[in-house]
Amino acid sequence: MFDVRFIERVLPALLDGLWITLAIAFLAFAIAVPWGLCAAILHRRGGLAAALTGGYVQLVRNTPVLIQLYLVYYGLPMAGIMLSAFACGVLVLAFQTGGYAAEIFRGSLASISVRQFEAASALGMAPFARWRHVILPQLFLRSLPALTNQAATIIKDTAQVGVIAVMDMNKVGQIWLEKSGNPFDVFIALAAVYLVVTTVVGLAGRLIERRLSFVQ
């Protein structure tokens, strides 16, 4: 059924593409988390800020990544902005994941009792110190399982950046598929590598969760 020798030939090429996949996922996630946190905090303030962040979340949740990639990659040059395909991929995935991260943080924030804010104020803590020492540690811990899930999702979403000419692992796989006309072994190899990487991310998330559990 499986052509093991063929998979052995494909794997080194896929692993070359894996570095691009991981680089995009890492950078996009590194941008998306603080971006989502800012959006969640702004949303909590209510008024215009809440309306804007709500609109942003609706926009990213209700439009496909693929369309966003096309719009940024082909649309920006028409406005005179020429970003590399790699940068377009990072931006779109960060924008997309930021929206989901904002929702994750918003939910976690809602689960923290408002009395904790009041108690920190009563102790004379400045707003920044309140967030830094009281709210954020709990917020991250409560958000961690969902953020880990989002990290795995972003790795899988990178499979779409090939449409804008980024040579990620999936794109390398597509080229091998074209070359060989042997789709199944290529797909099996691709799926196996994605599975290993996302499993490692999931385990790392759980490990961090366990280490930080003392906060609660």
Partner: peptide, 18 residues
């Protein structure tokens, strides 16, 4: 070089200056 998936995509990439 940039590698794209279909003829329409490479045509568009050239038309928009990529």
């Amino acid at each position: 070089t940039i590698v794209l998936d279909n003829p329409a995509a490479i045509l568009l990439a050239t038309k928009v200056g990529r």
